[in-house]
Amino acid sequence: MNNEMQVLFWILVFPGFVFTAVLGLLAAWIVRKVSALVQYRVGPPFLQPFWDVRKLLSKEVLIPQEANKWVFIGAPLVGLAGVLLLSTLLGVAAFWPQKTFVGDVIVAIYLMVLPSLALILGSSASASPHAAVGTAREMKLVMGYELPLVLAFIVVIIKSGGALGLAAIAETTPVASISGAVAFLVSLLCIHAKIGYVPFDMAEAETELGSGVLMEYSGGLLALWNLTSAMMLVALPMFLVVVYLGGFGTTPAGITIGLLKYVGVLVLIILIKNTNPRVRIDQAMRFFWIGCGLVLVTAIALATIGNIYDIGWL
């Protein structure tokens, strides 16, 4: 297999599209099923997320008259491409550590924001008043959580001694220290907001905006958004596992433990989702900037001190 073929295989099959989509829909089922159990419900059958996507694909795509057609259609493709590349990048870093390049973690952080930006683009192109409010909220939310996400990442870089490659970072376990644990928790919340679950689902907010940003999407385009968010359920927790929890390893035992870590992160996300009401957008921004920001500044200080005096647990 030559190099191009291998890259293509990575992107399209494993750890890219096929793998991430199947695992993502599976994760979506877990989220729905566990939420249902928490709420005394039965929950959907195992294949429901797959059926949902299949059914949406068979439905008519309606494009609002006033919408900017090409942006409206292009946005879900951009979003899907973003999360696809992100999961490929993370998967390669996890399973073929020698094939990574320096600075890939910066690429990962940029790719992570792509689906949200695509959502903002697509919904603002749809010319719906509900979507307009949703767009404004999504924009503010992105601005809210990007800052603490990057600040938290600084802690990781300090802990790993200035490494800028995913593979190198995966060899350290920042969460085993105070500053790292704090950074992990904050990142978890940022990831939660990125996925758009309660309490940070104000951009969709069914009972306020009637699914806001996604309001005008239907049929195949909506299926793409569903797929994108399902794949985010793989890529974003995987990012946390690689960056904070010591990665997956390459031995079968290491991969099993890595998968358990992934499931653990997923469970945390489900718990947060089911034990909180939706917060207002201004409250969310204040929480991310002031609350998380101050905590992270402290964490960075602790990590720096730990680094200078060689205290691992700080």
């Binding site: 709420q39 309660v198 689902d201 009972t207 009401p277």
Partner: peptide, 16 residues
């Protein structure tokens, strides 16, 4: 009210 502010767990529990 729980449902309206996105707190579906309260929604389901209360109705049970």
């Amino acid at each position: 009210a729980g449902h309206f502010i996105g707190y579906d767990t309260v929604f389901m529990w209360a109705w049970k």
